[in-house]
Every structure is written in structure tokens, then in C-alpha cells.
């Protein structure tokens, strides 16, 4: 197993087709694009441990998340930051309580203070989710997903509910965070423009199958090697 690398190779039977995914990544940004119901969110759920594959394996940084015939690694131990579609902020907790939810007493919170400043949410900490805008919710959810210092960031349609200006701002902030944190980021989108702008590599998924894999202009060395070795 290569350190600092996500390897995904699994199959899972869904209602109308089988989801079969095979790819690996380092600290890149990968965009999963494809029509609704093509299995993109299920892929994220399988990596996070919310859903389990039927066969194959998933591993990150040497930790086996799933291996056929073995007990899957608990969600709590996978160190995944997951931004759910519609953000799923806890409605009964303030922004600050949402972000700090996964931290323990005595934890170093320096990175959270930095994140709050970087994402421009430092002034929202005492507000509740119903009191903030869609763009602010997105940034709070991103801060929350990163607060527990994850080894991988999974984003499910993170920009779908945002207007153009807010979308551009949030994308800029995500790029800044990725430059600073250097962790693998997978984001689901149905918008090609978002994928081209943000991702190093684009994986196109249709009815559970990876139908296309290509580099964007941002694409790095690792992505190039992968594509040369296994072009689709």
C-alpha cells in the first residue's frame, strides 16, 4: 500500500444496476460527474463507511476501510470529512457548536480558528443554521467537515444550491484549503464547468460504471501516470 493514497476497487449492487468503481488518487481533487442516480453519492458513502460494498476493497493511507470477507472499518475510525448535500448542519446547535462537534476538551483548535477566518465565517459563530444564508451554510459545513482534521474530504454537490457569485467564492476557498491541507478531495457535481474549474481529474460515472477519466488543465503528475497506465 502506498502511503498518502486512496485506492478504490469495489462492486455494489444497487436497485437498477451494479456500481463498479476502480480508481486511485493522491492528494488531488477529483470531480465525479454524471446524471442523478448514477451512483456518485453511493461511492462517497462507501468510502465514508455509511454504505458497504458487496465485494472488493477500499483503503486510504494504508488503513483498510473495506476488504471483502473482513469486518469493515468503523465510520468513526476512517477520518473522512464529509460535506453532505444540503449540508446537514445540526439545526439545534449554533455555528460554533456545529464546527466544534467532533472536537474534544483539550484539542488544539488553531486550525479551526484559521479555517473560520479563511472561510469568512468568524462572525457567524453564535448564529443558528436557520439564521444564515445558503453560501454561509456551505462554508460552515466545509469548516465542520475539516474540523476533525480528516485524511480525505468528500463533498456531495457542494455548490449546487449557490448563486454564481457565492459559488465562485466557495470554489476559491476550497482551492485555498486544498493547497494548504494537501489531502485527497472528491467532489460530486452534475455541472461540467465546476469540475473543469476545480478538479485535477474528472471521473464520469453513468449507471454505476466509470465511463470516462481525464485530466483537466490543473491535473498533476500522479493523475497523468494513472491515465497513461489505465486510460478509459
Amino acid at each position: 500500500m502506498t502511503a498518502g493514497m486512496l485506492t478504490v476497487n469495489f462492486r455494489k449492487k444497487l436497485d437498477h444496476f451494479e456500481l463498479a468503481m476502480e480508481f486511485s488518487m493522491k492528494d488531488e481533487i477529483i470531480a465525479l460527474i454524471g446524471p442523478s442516480g448514477s451512483g456518485k453519492t453511493t461511492l462517497l458513502n462507501c468510502i465514508a463507511g455509511i454504505a458497504q460494498p458487496d465485494a472488493g476493497s477500499i483503503a486510504l493511507n494504508g488503513a483498510v476501510f473495506y476488504e471483502e470477507g473482513q469486518k469493515p472499518l468503523k465510520i468513526q475510525k476512517r477520518k473522512t470529512g464529509y460535506l453532505f448535500q444540503d449540508y446537514a448542519l445540526f439545526p439545534h446547535l449554533s455555528v460554533e457548536e456545529n464546527i466544534l462537534y467532533g472536537t474534544k476538551k483539550g484539542d488544539d483548535l488553531t486550525h479551526i480558528t484559521e479555517l473560520s477566518k479563511l472561510l469568512g465565517i468568524a462572525g457567524l459563530l453564535d448564529k443558528y443554521p436557520h439564521q444564515i444564508s445558503g453560501g454561509e451554510k456551505q462554508r460552515v459545513a466545509l469548516a465542520r467537515a475539516l474540523a476533525a482534521k480528516p485524511d480525505i474530504l468528500l463533498l456531495d454537490e457542494p455548490f449546487s444550491a449557490l448563486d454564481d457569485d457565492t459559488r465562485a467564492l466557495c470554489q476559491q476557498q476550497l482551492q485555498k484549503i486544498h493547497e494548504r491541507w494537501k489531502i485527497p478531495v472528491i467532489f460530486v457535481t452534475h455541472l461540467k464547468a465546476d469540475a473543469e474549474k476545480l478538479a485535477d481529474r474528472i471521473l464520469k460515472v453513468d449507471r454505476g460504471q466509470m465511463t470516462e477519466q481525464r485530466l483537466t488543465e490543473r491535473g498533476g503528475q500522479f493523475g497523468r501516470q494513472i491515465l497513461e497506465a489505465d486510460p478509459i
Binding site: G49, I50, I75, K79, Y82, Y101, A145, P150
Partner: peptide, 15 residues
């Protein structure tokens, strides 16, 4: 209770 809220907690490593 939306199961996503519980899953958020789990992905954050919370018991």
C-alpha cells in the same frame, strides 16, 4: 431524525 445528522457525527469520529 434525518440519519444524515447521525452520519455527520460518525464521520467526525464521535461515539
Amino acid at each position: 431524525v434525518d440519519p444524515r445528522w447521525e452520519n455527520v457525527g460518525r464521520t467526525m469520529g464521535v461515539s
